[in-house]
Amino acid sequence: MQRFINNPDDIVDETVAGFVRAHSDMVKLDAENNRVVLSQWAGEKDRVGIVTGGGSGHEPAFIGYTGKNMVDATAVGELFSSPTAKSFHDCIKAANGGAGVAVLYGNYAGDNMNVKMAAKMAKRDGIEVKTVVANDDVCSAPATEREKRRGVAGEIMMWKIGGAKAATGASLDEVIATAQKAIDNCRSVGVGLGPCTLPAVGHPNFEIEPGKMEVGIGHHGEPGTRVEELKTANEVADDMTRIVLDDHNLPAGTEVAVLVSGLGATPVDELYVLFDRMASQIEAAGLKVYKAYVGNYFTSLEMVGATLTVLALDDELKPLLDMDTACPGF
């Protein structure tokens, strides 16, 4: 595969530089840490600050969700690797407007450790920090061990709703409770058809044989829980929908938001093919699709594949999902 690379070691810095230049109306670089992207609205007085962060290679996540009524400060890691504790700490300081900071991030070993250390550092600065750890990826652990599940595209819903809640002037505890509810109401699944390559490594970090697919694949190429013959788009859509809804177990009549994201190298038209069938299946299960997002929202370099996220809505979450935002990712 041919790629646009200068020096593989510089790709993250160059991505961030291009990103803040392109979207300077909404985001800026932290003055002292070039691995911290700030919303132009970050640090607003008496509003709870929202922080996230994660490895690079998932663009537009994580940086793309920095903006108005969204994330205030985003820590940027190496490709597929957690940001440093220092970067999370710098984010917390920049996002703090005196009402505390909610760090809303995904369940990965590195992020857990670095956020824990950053929260400790922030405590010494006198900043109150609370966290929500996203774990929406159904196939990464059984339902009985939900605390072990990874966070994937459901994080976008958590940031959207958490950021909107903060914008209403809610307290830190209220923002945390609502962001927690948002991720608790999310279930996601990924299917991979082709692997991805870290430019500095130079070869794919796992193989998917021609004609096969991996059901339950992770955002970093964590191999799936099932490898089987590639089926038609409708059959794959049915499988993905079944996995998510079986785990979700939602009462009929529930309104949901549906997010179908490409993993980087799947054409957007195929995502719409999947979505059409998924929406039919979701409606057939007695649920109502209130809002849909289809596109490349949370990618994994040039992995071929897609993820499905279903968020169950209620009267609190709907207006928060609908609140206007200004961020490059939407």
Binding site: G55, E78, P83, T84, A85, G110, N114
Partner: peptide
């Protein structure tokens, strides 16, 4: 390791 590398290995 702690201020520039991150990941899991940075803090560990």
């Amino acid at each position: 390791l702690m201020s520039e590398i991150g990941g899991s290995m940075g803090p560990l």
